[in-house]
Design a protein around this nucleic acid. Structure first.
Lengths: 138, 138
DNA sequence: GCAATAAATGCACTTCCGTTGCATAATTAG
DNA sequence: CTAATTATGCAACGGAAGTGCATTTATTGC
C-alpha cells in the first residue's frame, strides 16, 4: 500500500486518503474511468473532491485523459514511463459499442500522418470503435 | 439555388426554407460547424428547429458528424460521393488549437490498424490537433 | 379544391456533465 | 504554536444535448 503513496509523492501529489482510494480504484480497472464511474463507486464522497482529484492526477501526470467520442471525459492511469504529452507516446484507444467500455491499446501507437503544407501537428487522438475481445466472445 | 433543393430531395429531405438556408450556410463554410455556430448565424430561428435540422441532415447523409475532441458536436457537408458510414471512407480531421476551427482532410484516410485478437473495428475517428495553415501564417 | 394525414416548427422544460466560488478543515512550513 | 498553504465540502452556475407536446405548414387521397 505504501507503494501508492510513493508513486503519488513522486509525482508531487499529496497522498491523502481519498486520493489513495481513487488511485487504487483506477489501478484495479483496466478500462478508462469517468467521473460518474468514480462517483458511483464512492457514493459517500463529494463529487467536487473526486472531480478535482482527477484533475490533479491529470495535471501531475498520474493519469491521462481519454476522449473516446462518447462525449464523456475518461481517465486511465499512466503506465510507468508513459509520456502522454509526447507525440511519440500517443497510443490509440478502443471503444466497445457493446459494453460501452474504453481501453488503452498502449502498444499500438498512432501512425505518423503526412499533413498538407502549413499544418503543424502537436497532438493526435485515434479512437477505434467496434466490439472488444470480451464482447466478441473470445 | 434550385441546386440545393434537388440535392436535399435526392437524399429525401424535404427542402423547407430553413433547411435550404442552413444548407447554404454549411456550404459556404469550409470548416466544421456546431449547433451554436448556426444558432448565432440564425439568431431569429428556434434552437430546436436548427437542432433537428442537423439531426435530419445527419440521418439522411447530408452531413456527417465530427467529434473533434472539444466536446462539442460539429457537422460538415458530405462531399459528393461520400460514404461516411463505410470504413474505407473515413477521413481524418484537423483541429486548430489557435483558431479553434476544425476542418475535414478528406484526402487523408485513416490508416488501417491491426488490432489484437478478438477486437472487431467498425468505425474509427482520428483527430490531429495543432496549428492550421491559416494560423501558421502560410 | 378540400378534408384527412403526415411532417416541420416553436416553445417550454429537463437532464447530464463539467466547472467555479467560497467557506471550512487539514496539513505543512517557519 | 502560528501562519500559510493545500485539500475538502457545499452550493450553485452554465453549456450543450435532448424530449414532449401543441401548432403550423405541407402533402396525399379523394
Amino acid at each position: 500500500m505504501k507503494e501508492i503513496e510513493k508513486t503519488l509523492e513522486n509525482k508531487s501529489v499529496r497522498p491523502t486518503a481519498m486520493r489513495i482510494l481513487i488511485y487504487k480504484y483506477l489501478a484495479e480497472k483496466e478500462v478508462a474511468i469517468s467521473l460518474t464511474d468514480i462517483e458511483t463507486a464512492f457514493a459517500k464522497a463529494e463529487r467536487t473532491t473526486l472531480y478535482r482529484t482527477l484533475k490533479t492526477f491529470e495535471d501531475k501526470g498520474v493519469v491521462h485523459q481519454i476522449d473516446d467520442g462518447t462525449g464523456i471525459q475518461k481517465y486511465a492511469l499512466c503506465e510507468p514511463g508513459c509520456n502522454c504529452d509526447l507525440e511519440q507516446d500517443l497510443h490509440l484507444h478502443f471503444h466497445c459499442n457493446n459494453c460501452d467500455e474504453t481501453v488503452c491499446l498502449t502498444e499500438h501507437k498512432i501512425p505518423h500522418i503526412n499533413l498538407p503544407e502549413g499544418y503543424i501537428a502537436e497532438d493526435a487522438n485515434l479512437v477505434l470503435k467496434g466490439i472488444c475481445e470480451k464482447c466478441s466472445g473470445q
